[in-house]
Nucleic acid binder design. Structure first.
Lengths: 341, 341
DNA sequence: CAGAGTCGTGAGAGCGCTCTCACTCGCACG
DNA sequence: CGTGCGAGTGAGAGCGCTCTCACGACTCTG
């Protein structure tokens, strides 16, 4: 059946505490908020009263007057997106949470459903726009996503994970240097002596995927090579399909760069089925360095500093919330070498 | 550099709308909350005013008086847990979100950090306990987790994903029939003619893992067999290690049941490295049916109805929040057969 | 020793909303 | 034609908190 006594008696308020400590509401409020202008004796008395009464401030009352909720949202466009980029998103989520530790700010994960409330004016837009949160981190934003515009129009502080498209709303953002990262992957393959190199790129409507493709192409071009391209959607199965297509187009393929570890995993599976040895026949490099360490063989991958991304995202958003300016940040990647390339 | 005009002018309030529509605050409130006792003409006028002004109710003010926040929390104990059971937790999260679609209730994901605010009275306990949310779904609860007790003591409605230990707080819960699920896995292996069967069990301090072990043992016993047991923590790598240990203890192993797909994946890797064919030499069954469909070979697994679990969790919690009783729910599993067993 | 600060404290307004209660109609009833 | 009643509406009292302002009690300064 269920929980214990059905709700304790009325929760203590500032008033109750004040009466108990023999001071005014204002003074209790000062103690609770750590104001320095309270004498030590009074402070102690108030703290004792708070302890005895088990007083906890009412967040609704507080934010009614402060116009602050001490809550920020991480907004993920839709469940499918959420699942597909799984490892990256969960990691980012965890890291953002960690970056918030020690502060009073609470993180709320908002997943856009696909129900009727989906479009502009939907439940989630209303939520994010109507004062429930002080600001938002927008994640996994595709080009046609209206959310950045909505947030900007509503005057709600927001930052982006990943750079916005050139024609998009100019929100502050944190990105990793995808061009350089992908280029280092391409150069690594070239350095290994590979010459027939292909890439499994990400969705064409995401800037991160575009940049990785750009970097890859630049890396090959520098070596006087051209590469095959096949697109996936960051999932394992799309990587599997893309790798088969690539193999069909170029049976003598000897190097492969996948724009996500998930896709690299799918490619590994396709290669194994096709009887190719990795790295013997085909050297494979992934991206994210989030899912490949336990692969077979362990995946060489471009690591993104997700912890730093999270910290910068939080820092930028905090700045915007306080009305300070926030400059975009671009973080470097590192190539982590393992057995696959 | 950032968002557009720095915040629109003061947001419209009930007062503003009332003035514009030529009615009182109370009437606007009635319209906003869909009260039936408003004449059609007035309702229309008010709705027009709301539209023109772009009025959005202030949630803090509202919940200050209603004592409701229309927000529930899903509480995940710690980042490591979150990561380890990855697929299950993300799926559950998505499904709970989906179950909430159409309602006005918003889901907040709360991850317990490991900082100083960790213990009782920590940031997260305060958050969940102090009126930020109407209730909470507790997930991945280990035996020594104080949270169920804290919630019960604070009188905050809460429900559990997975049955609580016998000596734990009697919160309403939703569980799957882990005993029957594991038993069906064992029976399947037996039915395949396997006789040297082992299991990789989950953490001993989680009831779900216990139940799976119980069911597995029961299934073997019914066939007059005994099985080897090795414990893991639901991660891929723990499955890898456990499978090696099992292989060392019983080289002629011909059947293996892992209490999670992740661990089954690790086992697959260990078996391949040991030169065993799956399912030829060793038949493998996983649990969750969340990560094995694209494995090599595709994993036979015990499927949990995560969507139903989510729906029931939401239903039970809603009942508790409304002060209605909530009976525990136990849902059935199904064995999904693929190539691995 | 008067004037000018400090410092700690309390009084009280007000944040935007909901909800009870009282009031005003218009209409059916006796 | 008075009375009763239900439906629609408004007035106003809070919900629990923060924050400005005023004030009393000191401590300094000249």
């Amino acid at each position: 059946m269920a929980a214990g006594t059905n709700e304790a008696i009325a929760a203590p308020t500032l008033e109750t505490v004040a009466a108990r400590a023999g001071v005014s509401r204002a003074t209790v409020s000062r103690v609770v908020n750590g104001s320095p202008k309270v004498s030590p004796q009074v402070r102690e008395a108030v703290q004792a009263a708070i302890g005895e009464l088990g007083y906890v401030p009412n967040p609704a009352a507080r934010s009614l007057v402060t116009r602050r909720t001490d809550t920020i949202a991480m907004v993920v466009p839709e469940p499918d997106d959420f699942l597909f980029a799984d490892a990256y998103l969960t990691t980012l989520l965890t890291e953002v949470n960690r970056a918030l530790e020690g502060s009073e700010t609470q993180l709320v994960l908002v997943i856009q459903g696909r129900g009727p409330g989906r479009g502009a004016g939907g439940r989630m837009h209303r939520y994010v726009t109507s004062g429930h949160v002080d600001g938002a981190i927008l994640v996994s934003v595709h080009r046609d996503n209206p959310l950045p515009r909505i947030m900007a129009d509503a005057g709600v502080p927001a930052v982006l994970d990943g750079r916005p498209p050139a024609d998009g709303v100019a929100l502050p953002f944190v990105d990793v240097d995808n061009v350089a990262g992908a280029q280092s992957a391409a150069e690594h393959l070239v350095g290994l002596g590979r010459r027939r190199i292909a890439t499994i790129a990400g969705p064409a409507d995401m800037t991160g995927a575009q940049d990785r493709l750009t970097g890859f192409a630049a890396g090959l071009r520098a070596a006087g090579l051209a590469g095959l391209v096949e697109h996936g959607d960051y999932t394992e199965s799309s990587g599997f399909r893309a790798a088969r297509a690539l193999l069909a187009a170029e049976p003598r393929l000897d190097g492969l760069f996948a724009a996500s570890d998930q896709m690299a995993l799918g490619a590994l599976r396709a290669l194994r089925q096709a009887g190719r040895e990795v790295p013997g026949d085909v050297a494979v490099v992934g991206y994210d360095d989030l899912a490949g360490a336990a692969a077979d063989p362990p995946l060489t991958s471009v690591r993104q500093p997700v912890d730093l991304v999270a910290q910068e995202l939080v820092r930028l958003l905090a700045a915007r919330i306080d009305g300070r300016p926030a400059e975009p940040v671009v973080l470097p990647t590192t190539l982590v070498r393992r057995a696959s390339a």
